[in-house]
């Protein structure tokens, strides 16, 4: 396929920190014009990957091409074509919202006239105008994150890397944030975004799941749910904790996890009656047991659980 179709393309991308492998031979392709959701538990290497793709960290091994530019060989054109919002808030707290945007506009070579117009556009789009002349330090987190997004998108980059842009943000701001991302993607931008929130993952065109520096799953939200191995049951039982423990002890249960005030139990075969029998014989009252289709959260939790069990097994076998 031609490079134009992939906005991010990595091959064996690896990053080590003093022997510790944070990103391990990552091979990834992100189609242009999509919202790519990068998932994974804490420390799985999401930020490290993004930092390499933005030219902030040198890969220890492998290569990556972003927007057609090799990250190591063509760092300069790469910089013009990306907008980056780091996981840590990094605007100047002692500057007003407008001054922050003016700074980033100037730094990206925008001329004063077009820059002023562009700032007005961004103010409208992110609904920042009413706080435009406030010091950034004084804003609530949701607003700060919107300003940071504004700074990253000011020069209309074809690629946006957003590292947990909505962490700590209230649901209303979060929703607005995603509406903006949708409109940017409709406008042709490619968005590479990390999140821990499954509602947000649901809104992505494509997902990649990281674990221990590896990409362990990839696909559209629908495809990932489709690929869910086994059969998932919603179990309403009492007492809940005992039910969870009993389910986990059963040899034919692939996975069991707490989900709100119920359990989600995965079986390799569609045999709910056996599950009900075994749970009741363990002294648990089963009030409701029905098959459900998996949510992304189920998919994610199971993917991680399988990996963790595999890792534990490998450790145990080694002993």
């Amino acid at each position: 396929m031609s490079a134009a179709e992939w906005v991010v393309e990595t091959e064996g991308l690896t990053r080590r920190f003093d022997g510790f492998v944070a990103v391990d031979h990552l091979t990834l392709r992100v189609p242009r014009g999509s919202i790519f959701g990068f998932l994974g538990p804490n420390g799985s290497g999401k930020s490290t990957t993004i930092r390499m793709l933005c030219g902030l960290l040198k890969p220890s091994e492998g290569r990556a091409v972003v927007n057609g530019f090799d990250i190591e060989r063509h760092p300069e054109p790469l910089r013009q074509s990306l907008g980056y919002m780091s996981q840590r808030f990094s605007l100047y707290p002692d500057l007003t919202v407008r001054e922050n945007l003016e700074f980033y506009g100037g730094v990206y070579d925008l001329e004063p006239g077009p820059l002023a117009e562009r700032i007005e556009q961004v103010f409208d789009q992110l609904r920042l105008r009413e706080h435009g002349n406030d010091l950034t330090a004084a804003l609530p987190l949701g607003w700060k994150q919107r300003v940071a997004l504004g700074a990253a998108m000011l020069h209309q980059p074809p690629v946006l890397f957003l590292d947990e842009p909505t962490s700590g943000v209230d649901p209303a701001s979060r929703r607005m944030f995603w509406e903006i991302l949708d409109s940017l993607a409709v406008g042709g931008a490619s968005i590479f975004v990390t999140t821990h929130v499954m509602d947000e993952a649901e809104r992505c065109d494509l997902l990649g799941v990281m674990y221990g520096g590896h990409l362990i799953a990839q696909g559209t939200p629908a495809a990932l749910k489709e690929a869910f191995p086994g059969f998932l049951y919603h179990v309403d039982a009492a007492p809940l904790l005992e039910a969870l423990e009993a389910a986990r002890r059963l040899p034919f249960v692939a996975d069991a996890a707490m989900f709100g005030d119920a359990l989600h139990v995965t079986l390799p075969a569609d045999d709910p009656e056996r599950l009900r029998r075994e749970l009741e014989s363990a002294g648990v009252t089963v009030r409701d047991l029905r098959r459900i289709s998996p949510t992304l959260e189920d998919v994610f939790v199971q993917l991680i659980a399988l990996r963790e069990r595999a890792a534990e097994g490998a450790e145990g076998g080694g002993r």
Partner: peptide, 30 residues
């Protein structure tokens, strides 16, 4: 994307943006 005119004008715009920001820091934290 940003229109680019002359490499020097880009340099001057970036320098101006940085100098301005730096001056604001000084004024806000006298």
């Amino acid at each position: 994307m940003a229109e680019r005119l002359h490499p020097l004008s880009g340099f001057l715009r970036r320098v101006r943006a940085i100098a301005r920001k730096e001056a604001i820091h000084l004024l806000r934290e006298p």
